[in-house]
């Protein structure tokens, strides 16, 4: 892809393959399970979701959880901004990517998106849309950081901003934040989200 012209070929191929694999899976089951409490993990492992997002997990006890996810043929993503105990920097990203072997990293920070790309894991950049000014600066950050995927939060904002995002930058979008009812999941998918992320167990197929 032209947007990857600056990326070393090896990284581009490896990550593009795993991004493609993720989206093939999302085309079948467009849901990522967000794990807020460890006790929800068995339900997520038993579900058909192709991806599991860890938020707020303790970094140095994350390995076995991630490996259990991958043993089920699912992809494990870690939200580094909220992980306790881990530096929000290149070394923190490298730990997750190299020592634990996560499939992807979720962050709102452009510098960490770049670090994730350098470490050859999928980079998901969260757009934290709490006001309309935030949209402009967040899109500038996305254009600069070039994540593999953008996650728009909260979901209720997505219909209000989807056209502006698409006009600015072509990037696959997943939607999360207060998705607790089936109709909210369907609404996001109808507007072009590739998947929704939710911690509501009943929404995991």
């Amino acid at each position: 892809m032209a947007t990857r012209a600056m990326t070393p070929p090896a990284r581009a191929q490896a990550v593009d393959r795993s991004v493609a694999r993720l989206f093939e899976a999302f085309d079948r089951v467009p849901v990522a399970a967000v794990i807020r409490h460890a006790e929800d993990l068995p339900r997520a492992l038993a579900s058909q979701v192709p991806a599991i997002f860890f938020v707020r997990a303790p970094a140095f006890h994350l390995g076995p959880l991630v490996w259990a996810v991958q043993a089920r043929g699912k992809m494990a993503f870690v939200h580094i901004d909220l992980i306790a105990g881990l530096g929000k920097d290149r070394a923190g990203v490298a730990f997750l990517a190299r020592e634990i072997g996560v499939n992807g990293i979720i962050t709102s920070h452009s510098a960490l998106v770049a670090a994730a790309r350098a470490d050859r894991v999928i980079a998901v950049q969260r757009l934290l849309l709490y006001d309309d000014l935030g949209l402009h600066s967040a899109m500038t950050a996305v254009e600069h950081a070039r994540p593999d995927i953008v996650e728009v939060q909260p979901a209720v904002i997505f219909p209000l901003v989807v056209d502006q995002i698409r006009a600015r930058h072509p990037v696959p979008i997943i939607v999360g934040g207060f998705v607790t009812e089936p109709h909210q999941r369907e609404a996001a998918l109808e507007r072009g989200a590739r998947a929704v992320s939710t911690s509501t167990v009943s929404l995991w197929p």
Binding site: V34, R36, V55, R56, L82, L128, L129, Y130, Q153, P154, G176, G177, F178, S199
Partner: peptide, 11 residues
Amino acid sequence: IHALDSTGLET
């Protein structure tokens, strides 16, 4: 308080 997702709202 940013209401972006349940985790953030709780924090």
